[in-house]
Design a protein around this nucleic acid. Sequence first.
DNA 1: AGAACCTTCGCATAACTATGGTAAGGTTTG
DNA 2: CAAACCTTACCATAGTTATGCGAAGGTTCT
Lengths: 133, 133
Amino acid sequence: MERGALTIQEAAQTTGWSARMLRYIEETGLVVPGRSPSGYRLYGPAELQRLRTLRHLLEEFDVELSDVGFALRMQRDQELADAVGAWLLAPAIRPGEVSDSGWLAYEQDKHLQLLAAAGRTRPRHHDIEEETA
Amino acid sequence: MERGALTIQEAAQTTGWSARMLRYIEETGLVVPGRSPSGYRLYGPAELQRLRTLRHLLEEFDVELSDVGFALRMQRDQELADAVGAWLLAPAIRPGEVSDSGWLAYEQDKHLQLLAAAGRTRPRHHDIEEETA
DNA sequence: AGAACCTTCGCATAACTATGGTAAGGTTTG
DNA sequence: CAAACCTTACCATAGTTATGCGAAGGTTCT
């Protein structure tokens, strides 16, 4: 079998996920490895790095796979991203209105940057790490 | 009690949500109404509109409250947004895999603002309509 | 005062998420 | 060939999400 890519168990070891989870993660569409002609999943350097980063992401910011899955959906569905973005945008802009009981003062997040629709964000040439590859 | 803002039950009726859900939605931080001096929740035009839009959003794109909640988190936590954005960015590219400094690389993608706000439709003066207010 | 609201707290639950197993059956390779 | 992998499929479960309902106790309005 091709050397340069790890099988699921090997990948599991070096990434810290269980083989079971790697299959689950594939199901969610977050990291889909290639397959050998006989159907074995083959994790290359890119996938491995991605899996580690994913792990890091979930741990560092108490985020869940489903959350990242949603972000992925937004990245792929511009319309969805627009809709969500618009919804999020609204609250900030709300001049004088009701509820002025003082206390409910919104923190002025003047910096509601938005995140990402990297979809076509063309020019980012960002390389990946390698593995026992 | 102040007129111009609806109490939870009235708000529930005009938005289609149940009072229970309005409390839940408040818990998630998605729509937090003001309060009367005695503690009653007061939903103003903005909140009402927001609740309807939210409903529309969930229905139109099979999205869940927790998903929007996550988007909200990203909007408020730039660091989180950057991390997720960076992670999402990686997969698309397939240069030729050079490799080196690995993960510290994307750290530079600090400028990947993104996610679609309904942005460009600039003057999308989305006015809020009135209620029995 | 009393009806009709509102509040928080807690119980209950169906559906889903995140994981772990196990079984039946191919694939690789020593 | 047989051990050691891999695959899909299905069972199981702790935890979370999304909802509803009811209790105990303030608030409003008529």
